[in-house]
Structures are given as structure tokens and as C-alpha cells.
Design a protein around this nucleic acid. Sequence first.
DNA 1: TATCGAGCGTACCGTACGGTACGGTACTAG
DNA 2: CTAGTACCGTACCGTACGGTACGCTCGATA
Lengths: 221, 221
Amino acid sequence: MRSSLAERQETEEAGAEAPATPSVRQQAVLDAVLALMVEGGDQLTMDAVARRASCSKETLYKWYGDRDGLLTATVRWQASRVHAGREAVQALDGTSLREHLQDFAVSWLTVITSRTSVALNRIAVAHAGSRKSNLGGIVLANGRFAIGERVKPVLEAGRAAGLLAFADSEAAFRTFFGLVGRDIQIRLLLGEALDLDADEIQRDAGRAVDQFLALYGQANT
Amino acid sequence: MRSSLAERQETEEAGAEAPATPSVRQQAVLDAVLALMVEGGDQLTMDAVARRASCSKETLYKWYGDRDGLLTATVRWQASRVHAGREAVQALDGTSLREHLQDFAVSWLTVITSRTSVALNRIAVAHAGSRKSNLGGIVLANGRFAIGERVKPVLEAGRAAGLLAFADSEAAFRTFFGLVGRDIQIRLLLGEALDLDADEIQRDAGRAVDQFLALYGQANT
DNA sequence: TATCGAGCGTACCGTACGGTACGGTACTAG
DNA sequence: CTAGTACCGTACCGTACGGTACGCTCGATA
């Protein structure tokens, strides 16, 4: 079982911050961390991780250096899964613009309401309080900012097509972000139960898109 | 409460959740906790609190039972300071409605961007992960929900005056909340610097109110 | 004055947890 | 075959922190 990984593709010396995709075994470890995060934030000890992943602590320290390294790798691992590929934006009409926005809203709501995301964000927020190794920065970069970078081209394409009017795409996106997320994320982070099913998310997303278009849309949508 | 001490001077009795206003000395202790929270979340040990407040740990345990009790008391103490009294809503016209909303937006933004609020929310979020004593619930009740209960009557008065149109005041409030807060709180919690000065808050609030009125206002504003 | 209780400072205890060391095992290379 | 590598399991160490115990001072009351 353990020896069957002669794979170890390339040294991880790649680049300052790029941690090379983890091996299958390492992924299993990181998934164990994720699982522990989800089931109560205080179980997240190195012992517990080693037990859950059936590996030795020594291996954990060898692979990740220290606890923070393990957490960082876990955050990156989860981020790498969430990233959907960014498709190129082609010509837009009113309908496809609405669909794009709806998709973004749905996927964002789905992410932030997932138990994994809530647990991960809790860890990152807690960590942000006691500086050292900014998990918070990583989460922001792969969450809020990543989706921003994907939405803004769509907004700009919408503007180019005469469907939207705004001066600053960042500001427009932030409004969109607010209309979609509202109080949901903070309520979840603070422990409220509040689980939305797929239908509710769909409706919520639709409402947010409607409102956004009401604010920024040009008549012909 | 657990304390079977006869001490409790003026005692405010079974207010379900009212913990009797702390004595001056106790307030000093809670302020010390707040100060420690603000300067880095990991310094928050009982030793550090005792040292900072120049009191003995034994006193802390006598007054608050355990660490959670101390944290809970601190959260309540901070909440008791933030609460502005809720003024009654009288007749509204377009101008006064706008002013009311602007005030709410400004005060909310001011609160959530304060270092104290950020630190407190971080603690509460972290705590929400490992159940036991829901600081999260208290923070939510005194933050998001408290302001909701203060805004909704204003919205309803606005509707009664024909200035606003909506079916569900809760839903309308949540949109308002989203337009005001957008991504600010999560970015702060995750550690971004991002400090807004008074002018920026004023402008942000104004933009949010404009957008809200654009969505829910009846022509005559 | 003597007594009492609130509370400060410090020393102490138990334990949980991050991190290290080491022996044993399965597999590979030569 | 031997030597080497990668890893598991477990035992171990040091320390930080929650919680407790105790002696002391100070002010109030009689």
C-alpha cells in the first residue's frame, strides 16, 4: 500500500509559494485534516490528524514542517478543488449575462454555505487574530478575490455590450457580492444553523441577480 | 448563574440573560480582556488577564467561574456599550427616512470596522467551531439581529408613509444589510488591513442607501 | 483593639498538545 | 543477499495554560 507510490512527481522546489500538487497519500492526509475541521474545531491536534490519516506524526512534520504548514497546505488543497476553470467570456446578450451572474451567485452561495467552507473560514479567521502564517490571506485570495476576478470580466463584457452601466467594475462587483451574500456568511461563521437547500440557493441567487440588474442594468435586459 | 455568593450587590434578578451590570472593578477587568483581545488573539490567557487587570486569578474564577464565563461576560459587556437606545419612529418623509437609513449604515459600518469588534468577532467565530457556550449567539443577537430589529420599524414606517414598497421587512432588511456591509466584514475578519476613515464610511453608507432606495423606494423620494 | 472578608500575588498541580526520537516493517536497488 | 528508503506506531519531552491553594494586606465594622 504505502510503497506503491514511486510517483513523487518532481521536487517541490517549483516556486516560492507554489507547493506542488500533493501526492495521493498526501491528499488523503489533507482530507483527514478537513474532516477533523468540520467535526468541531478543537479536535484539530497533530495526534488526531495522524490517527485519522493512519500515518505517523513524524511523517506529518517531515512533509509539512509544523502545524501551521499542515494547515496552510490544507487550505491550499481545498482551494485547488474549488477553483472551477475560468472560461473565456464571449459575446453576451441579456440572457447569457443573467445566466452567468446566476451561475456565479449559485456557486458562491453553495461554497460559503458548505460545512467545509464554514470550518475552514473559522480556522482562518481565528488564525488571523494571532498573526503568523496568514491563512486568512490565502482564503481571501482563493475565495472573495478569486471570484471577483472571474466576475469582473463578465461585468465588463456586459458593459461593452451595452447591457450594464458602471464606472468601476470593482465597486460593481462588491455590490453584487453584498447582494448575494448578505448576512449569510457571518451568521454561519457565528454558529447559526441556517442550512439552505439547493432550491433556496437558486431563489436567493435569482433575487440577487434581479436586484443587481435593477441597479446596474440598461433598459434592454 | 452558578455563583452562590451572597455578594452580588444590587443584583438584577432573573432577566433570563441579563447578567447584572458589572461593578466598576469588574468593568476594568472586562476592559482588560477586550484590550488583550485587540492586541493579538493568542495572548488571551487567564494569567495575562490577571496581570493586565492587576487582580488575582482566583478573583477571576470567583467572579466568572471559568474562562468561558469570563469571555461571555466580556462579550455582553461590550454589547451593552454598543446598544444605542432605540428611539421611537415618528412620521417619516423622504428626507428623514434617508437620514435614518444613513445613520444606521454609518453606525453599523463604524462598529464592524472597529478593532474591538473585529477582535471580538474573531473570538466568537473561533468559539463557534468548538461548541460550548455560544459566544457566537450572543454576538449575533447583539449585532446583526439587534440592528435588524431597529431598522425594520423604520422600513415599515417608510412603507406606511408610501415611501417604500416591499412584502417582507426581514428580506428588505437583509438586502440593506448586504448593500451596506458587502465584503467588508469578512475581509477584516480574515486579516486584511483595510481601514476606512469617517469620510469613506459616510460615502459608503450614502451609496448603500441610494442603492437600497433605488430598489425599494417609491418614486417620490 | 480584634475580627472578618475581599481581593492581590505567587506558587503549585495536572494535563493536553506541539514537536522529537526510535525501533520495526515493507519495499526497492544493486 | 545487503543496504537504503520511506514510513508507521509509540513512547517520550518540555512547556504553556486552565484551574486551585494559600498567605498576605487593607479597609470596614464593632
